[in-house]
Simulated scan of single mutants.
Amino acid sequence: MPRHVLVLGGTAEARRLAAALVAHPAHAAGFRVTTSLAGRTARPEAVPGEVRTGGFGGAEGLARWLRAHRVDALVDATHPFAASITAHAARAAAAAGVPAVVLRRPGWRPVPGDRWYDVPSLAAAAEALAGPGGRVFLTTGRLGLAAFAHLTDRHFLVRSVERPDPPLPPHTEVLLARGPFTVDGERELLRAHRIDVLVTKDSGGEATAAKLTAARELGLPVVVVRRPALPAGVTAVPDVTAVLRWLDPVTAGQGCGAADTCP
């Protein structure tokens, strides 16, 4: 029976992991990888291996899918802010008795010269912007922008891969773009739009980190929405290499508990 790994994807790390698993020596000997995409992006980037699209029906539905498709290991490589999916994955893996690990790229950390203001949520970020006037570069994704819709005295430049969901602030300009971005390009964007403050989620990674460097160089404040906490008892690793190390005993049939740290 082929060893089956389910990757909950949608991130660059998930695509790299799928490629690494497809190229893994065990793949030719009966190693199988399936990447699940939520289906929220109309034109997702290609992913090696098998791909399924759409939700599972919560933790219970995912647990049923894990059993029905004889999944041997679950890798949650979703976005660091996909808290509901991560919670459902942890519950489903435990219910189905499937070893699980969370792949989370390291978060961003300030360096000398940064003017960062940490907040726990989008609502708190909107509160941090309270006051008349100002131009805001909002890079928190296309979801959840209703938290800023009541700020009628500010102008927002919203950048996302796809058009954001309403409601939006009344004075909003939408910029559709996909990273990676360069420091030179971000610096020019901030200047051209006369940005006063940057608002971002702590997504981590290099693809969108250039805006932080550009903001530092221009002396701009940055409101950083920090990540939600991971569910208790889950194993988290920072990169694809660490996932492959974690998978070794699983794909060899030795097992590795969801709350264990495997070498």
Rank of each mutant, 00 (worst) to 15 (best):
P169G: 05
P112W: 07
E217V: 14
G55T: 13
R3G: 10
G55D: 07
D114K: 10
R191A: 12
E217S: 10
A128D: 00
F148E: 02
A96G: 03
A18L: 04
E13G: 10
V33S: 02
E217N: 11
S84A: 15
R142D: 01
R142G: 06
S121F: 03
V199M: 05
G131P: 01
G133S: 07
L175E: 06
F181W: 07
A18I: 04
V22N: 02
P238Q: 09
L175R: 13
A209T: 12
A12R: 14
G134H: 05
T139Q: 09
E206T: 15
R43K: 12
F137E: 02
P48S: 09
L175T: 13
A236W: 02
T152P: 08
T34A: 11
L8Q: 01
R3N: 12
L103N: 01
H88P: 02
G179D: 00
T213K: 11
S84Q: 15
S203E: 05
L17H: 01
G204Y: 09
A46D: 05
A94R: 12
T241R: 15
V33Y: 00
H88V: 09
V75K: 03
A59L: 06
A146V: 13
A23G: 06
L145N: 00
R109I: 13
P221T: 13
G55H: 07
G57T: 11
H69R: 15
G205E: 02
A19M: 08
G141W: 01
A123G: 15
R105H: 08
T241K: 14
E206A: 15
T139V: 15
G204L: 11
L189H: 03
L190C: 01
P112Y: 10
A12F: 04
L247T: 08
D239T: 12
E162H: 04
V111Q: 14
G49M: 08
